[in-house]
Design a protein around this nucleic acid. Structure first.
Length: 576
RNA sequence: GCGCCUGUAGUGAAGGGGUUAUCACAAGAGGUUUCCAACCUCUUGUCCCGGGUUCGAAUCCCGGCGGGCGCACCA
């Protein structure tokens, strides 16, 4: 595997910086901390919000996508239908001899066709009957299989009679619940999509790797609903860059290759045009927030590793200090979710209507049961007989005929028991269960890689010097304001500029008055502030300030008015 | 969850059964300085938590919690 050498020194320097400057730090540290939970501090919270905002804006720029927001507490029935309760209840077996833990069904893989469906008692029996050996120590002495639930369980209602619920493991289910409202909102026309951002929860056995595997994490998901027979046409040609792709190693296109999105679809590596479009949109988003596109790759899941709900799945993996990490999953979930909710809830609102180009007209012959004859004749079976007559697909050739019920009983039907009718039926269309294509983004993992890819270390006059070269879309401040000296009128002018910048919508400035000017530049560089405006003696005379660009430390002098104007139009860079 | 390593100011480290725990950087106040972590003075702040051993524990032992690595897990 092409895993790069992990420089632990660099990672710990970056982690120290993140703690020291209040970007990302362990939660509840006062009480010893909790593994798998992190805080975004005073600087990091803004970065996180801007990544989220950029993501939301990215998708809302598409006309048939809207935002929704649903609860994190989810009743058990929803998660039973989605398959999460079953999937999350994997049984685990522990070796008494060496303490190793394995999934019980994995131990029985070769001995049973579907071990994952077995109850704990069955699993234990099979494990002991076949004297399964521990792959670690070779003994076969197992503890009883115990269910391992990876969801946080809770209950709705404080007193007795409460309902079991879980903290959601994904936001997707909330959007499926909203399908009827979305369908109405979009006037029954597909394709359409809904996005949702928020927290998800997984009670990981062993969270590791800093902010890569969290127990509570930020996710951003899009559910895109389509008519499987009318896949939307997409413009794949607008993405000219090539991206690394690793198709299914068991499939026809195995092997890593660099391709344009359009080529990947045209050669058949990516099967669905909408999936291909999402691959492109995903890379475009990652570039916007400052992920290094040479450090991303799309990897197609092999059939064997596909999630329970997906039919085709691509991960977008990012390369950083932890190696290649899955940060986005793009899955064609087909009709799985809506169909399953339809079945479990009994609702008929989870489907779409597809109108035919030309209505189908047909003359349909049918038999209608005559209740007054059938009733007295068949007594307690009369209802069954009547419905069987109505359901008949083929007209009997002659009377009397034999009618077979679903339980196999046969009855003789006389001509007087039915009434023949023929009607002209016009069928204008049909119901179908929409397919869902879902890009799901792990925001914390993306943020880690933004920080990682933009953490630049260099030497400056013999000293080590760190810059977070964050994109202006996600930097914690848009600009830093420095009075060269915090007196002689420079202090007043700096505060005036600061407040007029702050009054512009959405622009965040940071006023720093302490320490030497070089120190202040260094502090701003370290948290990724792209620009610094310094007010010096000349500023007092001619209302100009110097603007320093973080990435090359270049300076220019501009008037205060054009500073504010270009800052507002996000075009400060054009002045250089 | 198992095994090995580990936990000292905001950060990084030193020390280690015995007065008041050390250093650097950072941070705060003041001074100085016409633009890249300068300098001077002063200041704030630390032994992860709980038990045990001991006259005495930050130091030794046990447990917990946190971190790193390996194994397992990651729908």
């Amino acid at each position: 595997m092409g895993i790069i050498m992990v420089d632990k020194q660099r990672m710990s320097r970056l982690t120290s910086l993140l703690r020291r400057r209040g970007i990302v730090l362990p939660s509840f540290e006062l009480y010893g901390g909790v593994s798998g939970l992190v805080d975004y501090g005073p600087v990091g919270a803004t970065i996180k919000r801007r990544v989220m905002d950029t993501w939301i804006k990215h998708w809302l720029s598409i006309p048939n996508i809207v935002e929704v927001d649903s609860p994190t507490i989810t009743p058990e029935s929803v998660l039973i239908a989605s398959g999460h309760v079953g999937e999350f209840n994997d049984k685990m077996s522990e070796c008494r001899s060496c303490g190793s833990i394995f999934r019980s069904d994995h131990l029985l893989e070769d001995l049973h066709h579907s071990p994952e469906n077995l109850e704990a008692i069955e699993l234990d029996r099979l494990i002991s009957d076949h004297r399964i050996k521990c792959s670690r120590c070779g003994e076969s002495d197992w503890k009883e299989a115990v269910p391992m639930n990876l969801m946080f369980k809770t209950s709705i209602g404080a007193m007795g009679g409460s309902r079991t619920a879980y903290m959601r493991p994904e936001t997707a289910q909330g959007m499926f619940m909203l399908f009827p409202a979305l369908y109405r909102h979009f006037r029954q026309k597909m394709p359409f999509g809904a996005i949702q951002t928020g927290k998800g929860y997984r009670n990981e056995i062993s969270p590791r790797q800093g902010m890569i595997r969290l127990r509570e994490f930020n996710m951003a998901e899009l559910e895109f609903f389509i008519d499987p027979e009318l896949p939307p046409s997409t413009d794949l040609g607008k993405w000219q860059w090539e991206v690394c792709m690793i198709p299914d190693p068991e499939g026809d296109y195995a092997g890593e290759k660099n391709l344009k999105i359009k080529e990947a679809f045209e050669t058949g590596i990516v099967k669905h045009p909408t999936v291909a479009w999402f691959l492109g949109m995903t890379a475009e988003f990652l570039e916007k927030v400052g992920v290094d596109l040479t450090k991303i790759r799309f990897r197609q899941h092999a059939n064997s590793e596909m999630a329970h709900y997906a039919s085709d799945c691509w991960d977008c993996e990012l390369l950083g200090e932890h190696g290649w990490i899955e940060a986005v999953g793009i899955a064609n979930r087909t009709c799985h979710d809506l169909e399953s909710h339809q079945e479990k809830s009994g609702s008929k609102l989870l489907r779409g209507w597809r109108e035919y180009d030309t209505p189908i007209r047909e003359e349909r012959e049918s038999l209608k049961p005559v209740g007054s004859v059938i009733g007295p004749e068949f007594r307690e079976r009369a209802a069954d007989v009547s419905s069987a007559i109505s359901d008949l697909q083929k007209m009997p050739e002659s009377f009397p005929f034999e009618l077979e019920l679903s339980d196999g009983k046969r009855f003789v039907i006389e001509e007087t028991m039915v009434q023949r009718s023929s009607e002209n039926i016009v069928i204008n269309g049909e119901y179908f269960t929409p397919h869902v294509i879902e890009p799901a983004f792990g925001i914390d993992r993306i943020i880690w890689h933004i920080l990682d890819h933009n953490f630049l270390e260099m030497e400056k006059e013999g000293e080590s010097y760190a810059i977070l070269s964050l994109s202006s879309a996600v930097s914690p401040y848009d600009i830093a304001i420095f009075p060269l000296f915090d007196k002689d009128g420079m202090d007043v002018m700096a505060r005036e500029i600061f407040s007029s910048i702050k009054s512009e919508t959405g622009i965040i400035a940071n006023l720093d008055t302490s320490g030497s000017i070089g120190r202040r530049y260094a502090r701003a560089d370290e948290i990724g502030t792209p620009w610094a405006a310094t007010i010096d003696h000349q500023s007092l005379k001619d209302k100009t300030v110097t603007i320093r660009r973080r990435d090359d430390q270049k300076q220019i002098r501009v008037g205060v008015d054009s500073l504010i104007q270009t800052l507002y139009s996000n075009s400060l860079g054009t002045l250089f």
